[in-house]
Every structure is written in C-alpha cells, then in structure tokens.
Design a binder for these strands. Structure first.
Length: 614
RNA sequence: GGAGCGGUAGUUCAGCCCCGUCAGAACGCCGGCCUGUCAAGCCGGAGGUCGCGGGUUCAAAUCCCGUCCGCUCCGCCA
C-alpha cells in the first residue's frame, strides 16, 4: 500500500486552492487532518502548512483511489492528484478558506503512515501536559497556533533585519565559545580538550564583543543573538534565549532610545498590524518605584480601579499604632493601594486569601480599611487617632465602597515588592486590565546598589554602564572615602545612562550608554570591588581595547522571545520557541542534558563526582 | 535553595478528605455498518505496574514518609 514519491510533485499548497482553480487538475501533498468515511465516499481534509482542503474519493468512480483513502488515518502522509470543483450546493463549509471547493481525487498515494493512537490530537486548542507536547514537539508544531507563532517569529526576523539594515546597521556574528566573566548570571561552561583544565563559557550576551566592534569602527552593529544563562527558569526565562542585540557609536541615550522605539514600532506594525503610540512615555526609576513599586509596571492596570501606591509614611510619623510606629522609627515606609469599589468586589474571604498571598512574599500581614456607608470597617483603625484617619482618607481620596490595603515595612523594597504583586494579583482577580499594548521607558536607574549578601556594590545594569556625566565627580568622592556608609550615601545619587523598555509589565529590552574610557571603567571596577589584578585577568582585553581610540557608544538588546510572547498573547515564551526546555532545563524531545561516554569526559580532562544512576 | 498546585487508559479528567464492587467518563484508538460529511453518524470492542520507593493496615489510587517529574511563584536572573 505504501508507495514512493517518485516523480510526483505538488502543484499547489492545500490552503491556496480556491474558486480560481475550478476545473484545474492539481497535485497536492500533505498530512491527513481528519477523515470522514461514509462508506462509498470518503472525505479527507488534507493539511499542509498553508491550510486545509477537502479531498473527495468515491468508490464507484475510482475504486483504486478509494481503496487507499478508505485506509488512511490522521497524520498519514499522502499525495493526491485530482480535479478542483465547486462543492455541490448546500455542502459548502464557510469555516474553511477553501470551503467552497473540493478536490476530487483521481489518484491517492500513501507516502507514510503515522502510529496510532497519536500522543495527542492535532487540533488548534488542546489541553495537554506540556511535557508531552515538548516530547512530541514535531506533532505540536503541526498545530496551527504553533505554526503561526513560528511564522510570526520568522516575519519578525525579516522586519528587524530590514529595518536595521536600512538604518545602516551591520549584522555581525560573535563567538559562542568565549570567556567566562564575573558579574551577572552563572555561565554555562564548555571544557577545552586542547587545553586541559581550561573552559570556554557560553555568552550571557554579546556585550563585550559588540563594544569591541564599536572600537573597531563598525559604527552600527546588530545581531539576532542566542544568549545563555545558567539560572533557574520561569515562564519568561529559558536557559537559551534570543536577543535582538545592537550597538551604535557617537550617540547619546536619546539616540538609542529613539532608534529602538522606532524598531519596535515597525515590528508591531509589520508583524502584527498594530500601530503603537509613539514616542513611548518616559519614567524615571524613582518615579515608577514610588508609584508602582516596580521597575516594570503594568500600565494596563486600570488606576480607576486599583490605584498606584499612595505614600502615607508622613501621616503616621507620630502614630500610637506600634506596628506603624516601629516601621517609621526604623526608617521604613508605609504605603497603600486603594481598590475602588472593593467593598463589593472583595469579600472577607478574598481578603484573607490576599493576606496569605502577600505573606508568602514576605509581608508580615495585610492591613486594610473598608469604607462603609456610615463607618470604617478595619482591624486597625482603632489604633489610629481621629486626625490620622482624616488625613489618611483624604490622602487616599477614599470614597464609600473603597478598600485600602496597607504595607508598612522597615525594608522599603519589601513594601514595593508586595504592593506590586498585590496590584497585579488584584488586576487578575478583578479583571482590571485594559486591552492592548502599554509601553514605557524607565530611565535614571541607580548605577550601583549595595548587595547585602555579598557585602559589596553591584551594577544595577552591568559594569560597563556609563554614569551620568554630572555624577562622575560623585564617583571620585565615593572612591575617596573608605567609609562604606558614606559611600552608600554618595552612590545613592549616582544614576546611570541605562534605559529599559517595558511592555505590559514585562521588561522587553534594555540598554545603556557604555563607558568608553579606561579611567572611568577602572574606577567602576574599583567600586565593584574588582581589583586591578582581577580586572586585568577577566576584562583585560576590554580595558586594552578602550585604550586604542574607543568611540563613545551605547546600545540595546530586546528580549525577542518575550516581545513575541506578548505580541502573540501567550503566557510563556515557550510558546514562541520551537524547541524549548522545561523548568528543570530538560529537553523532553532529545532528553538533554544526558550522561556522556567516560571516554568523552577523559578527552576533555573532566571527572564527574558521582553518577547516581548506574 | 524555598513555597504552592498537579502526576489515575494514548489524551484530558473524576474517584483520594471518610482505606473495603472505584478502577470510571469523555475524546482518541481498534472492528463493523453507512454515498455529502466537515466535532460526520450508528453498533460493538480493546486499553490502566493509579509517577516511583518504602511504611501503616486484614485491606492502600485513597492514610503516612521519602523521592522523581511537570507547571506557577519567591530567591536567583548584571
């Protein structure tokens, strides 16, 4: 029954067949989508990447073809030769683009079978464990939504390449086998066979190379680059992911921001047919933190339902309420979020759930006040003075029916984290998000922050980020004191020329103007606690490059997977990656990672501590 | 490293709380019938070490302990 393709060549894709092909003889190949066998007449929906067309095989008219058609099952691979005709009146299927015609088969060739039953049915909407989908990804990708995602991704590559090429950018590939650098994420490492005991690292990003390309005078570089980071995974994080990476010389922050927002605008227009508001609004880091508690706020959240964070610390600076008083005394902050109409939409039970939710995030509790018609209902108002209550209600602009949620903590980061999470959670529950795509820029990030665990300063962006020009003197001041507290105080005010692009509450890209002078770079390394010897060892090549006429430069990198996921409207970047890994970093299709032959280990001069399954 | 949810036919799930005709449903699959379907229909059938290991018990999918895997989140991710 099985046959070979031989000289059979397709004349059309299935989805292309339409009324214009009526009476034409066509040759099609593809997969059996569904079979409807009526005994004597078989309808086969034949599918290829372009779509589906109905093939009809009648026993009386064509017994040979019928014999094969009678046996086909879903996902069998067949070739069909036949004539296109208009479907008999009343049998058209308006749901299919090809639904007004059908192909009457003269010949049906069976090219391959498919094991039955399939691990899952090939349908647009499926409810299947993701592990199964990944194991049989070739079947999963036959599904129209997945194919569409790949097509969109493909289109995005084209738009990006065209746009950046038109803007004068040069696409350059940078190495995958490179050098491990401190700072940042954990590296994936690759043992060297030729150099016992030495390792390559897979790049976390092409950062250093693109800067060096600027020193080389490329002026404008881009790459659609794979980046690899050995950190724990999330819905929006894979161990390998793709960045649209670019770098430009002789530019300031505004130039890079302008270029990248025009790029993203072009991508949305060309790929999704969506016009985005432009230019994008710009917020300072301080602004988004105090207003939303997040450096990647979701501006879709309706502020007429869930307010931004409201500052209350000053109102309670002399309060009798010990919990708040302690926080104020320790230099902490008190902030609130008001849920307009929350009295109706949030039950006591729901508030209890929210309390548990924030406690898991490290909150001590979730104080609240409900504004009822004639009184306030709350576990805490009894501790407040009349004046405090009045000020509070005024500040919150609280109306009857509102609920106010509080966070007070000596650690302001905790207040931010909790209220941000609370706002997102409330937005989910109350369906209080506007449709669409809400972009913003976040700028003026601090250059450095104090890492309590490591007891040193670390870069907020990365160590090659240029401080604002007006802050350069402050860096010298900081270096002139050994007093850590004083340093912290000085560095608090030092901002970087970094910028993040945020879309719908996710960071979709970021960049900065880089340090192009050795003297400044060395100072930053010093502040980071990277000694001269280590700096030389780890970044010597960059420092050296900066000595040979490095131009002022800056750049940007988009998280392509995140951008696509949001554009497509899926919850996980795995949906826009052909072969993603599970949360434990496993590829269920290939079963990577896996043990290797001891011989291979020996060749690369490695020994494994212990092998558990043997 | 931590928290939550989940793991029972090919798939999605019910059963689990209170151990005992609870091993079930739907879709899929297999066989048969059927000449206009497109979620085809009708009749019949097969299919499960209840993730894995241990324990408690007369008896475990069900209770306990451990472990693995999937998803979501915290830490981490410059």
């Amino acid at each position: 029954m099985l046959t070979v393709l031989g000289n059979f060549r397709r004349t059309h894709y299935c989805g292309e067949i339409n009324e214009n092909n009526i009476d034409q003889s066509v040759r099609l190949v593809g997969w059996v989508d569904t079979v409807r066998n009526h005994g004597g007449v078989v309808f086969i929906d034949l599918r290829d990447r372009s779509g589906i067309v109905q093939v009809v095989v009648e026993e009386l008219k064509n017994p040979e073809a019928y014999e094969i058609a009678d046996k086909v099952k879903p996902e069998y691979v067949i070739a069909v030769e036949g004539k296109v005709r208009r479907r008999p009146e009343g049998t058209e299927n308006p749901k299919l683009p090809t639904g007004f015609v059908e192909v009457v088969a003269d010949k049906v060739l069976l090219l391959n079978t498919a094991h039955q039953p399939l691990p899952f049915q090939i349908e647009d909407e499926i409810k299947v464990n993701e592990e199964v989908r990944l194991r049989y990804r070739y079947l999963d990708l036959r599904r129209r939504p997945m194919l569409n995602n790949l097509l969109l991704r493909h289109k995005t590559y084209q738009v990006v390449r065209n746009f950046l090429t038109d803007e004068g950018f040069i696409e350059v590939e940078t190495p995958l086998l490179t050098k491990s650098t401190p700072e940042g994420a954990r590296d994936f490492i690759v043992p060297s066979r030729l150099h016992p005991g030495k390792f390559y690292a897979l790049p976390q990003s092409p950062q250093l190379f693109k800067q060096i390309l600027m020193v080389a005078g490329l002026d404008k570089y881009f790459q659609i680059a794979k980046c690899l980071r050995d950190e724990d995974l999330r819905a929006d994080r894979q161990p390998e992911f793709t960045q649209i990476d670019l770098e430009m010389s002789f530019v300031g922050r505004e130039d890079v921001m302008n270029l990248t927002e025009r790029l993203v605008k072009e991508v949305f227009k060309q790929v999704a047919g969506i016009e985005i508001d432009y230019p994008l609004p710009i917020y300072s880091y301080e602004e988004v933190m105090s207003k939303y508690g997040s450096d990647k706020p979701d501006l879709r959240i309706r502020e007429d339902v869930i307010t931004p964070l409201i500052e209350l610390t000053d109102i309670f600076k002399n309060t009798q309420f010990k919990v708040f008083k302690n926080v104020v005394d320790k230099g902490g902050i008190i902030k609130a979020v008001v849920v307009k109409g929350g009295a109706k939409t949030l039950s006591r039970q729901k508030i209890d759930e929210l309390t548990k939710f924030v406690q898991k995030l490290g909150a001590k509790g979730l104080a609240w006040i409900r504004v009822d018609e004639d009184k306030l209902t709350s576990p805490i108002t009894k501790f407040f003075s009349k004046e405090e209550i009045e000020n509070l209600l005024n500040r919150c602009n609280a109306q009857v029916g509102d609920i106010i949620f509080f966070q007070a903590d000596s650690d302001r980061e905790s207040v931010y984290k909790v209220l941000d999470a609370l706002r997102r959670r409330l937005a989910d529950e109350l369906k209080a998000r506007e449709e669409g795509f809400k972009f913003l820029w976040v700028v003026d990030f601090p250059l450095l922050e104090w890492d309590k665990e490591e007891e040193r300063f670390v870069s907020v962006h990365h160590p090659f980020t240029m401080p604002r020009e007006e802050d350069l003197l402050q860096i010298d001041r900081a270096l002139n004191t050994e007093d850590i507290e004083e340093r912290k105080e000085i560095l608090k005010g030092v901002k970087s020329l970094a910028y993040d692009m945020v879309l719908n509450g996710e960071e979709i890209g970021g960049g900065s103007i880089r340090i192009h002078r050795t003297d400044i770079q060395e100072k930053i390394f010093k502040l980071l606690g990277i000694g001269a010897v280590e700096a030389e060892e780890k970044f010597g090549f960059l420092l050296e490059a900066l000595k040979y006429g490095a131009p002022p430069h800056g750049g940007f990198a988009f998280g392509l997977d995140r951008l696509l996921a949001i554009m497509v409207g899926v919850d996980s970047i795995r949906e826009v990656i052909a072969f993603p890994k599970t949360q434990k970093g496993i590829c269920p299709l290939t079963n990577a990672p896996d043990y290797v032959d001891p011989k291979q280990l020996k060749e690369v001069h490695c020994e494994v501590e212990r092998r558990e399954e043997e």
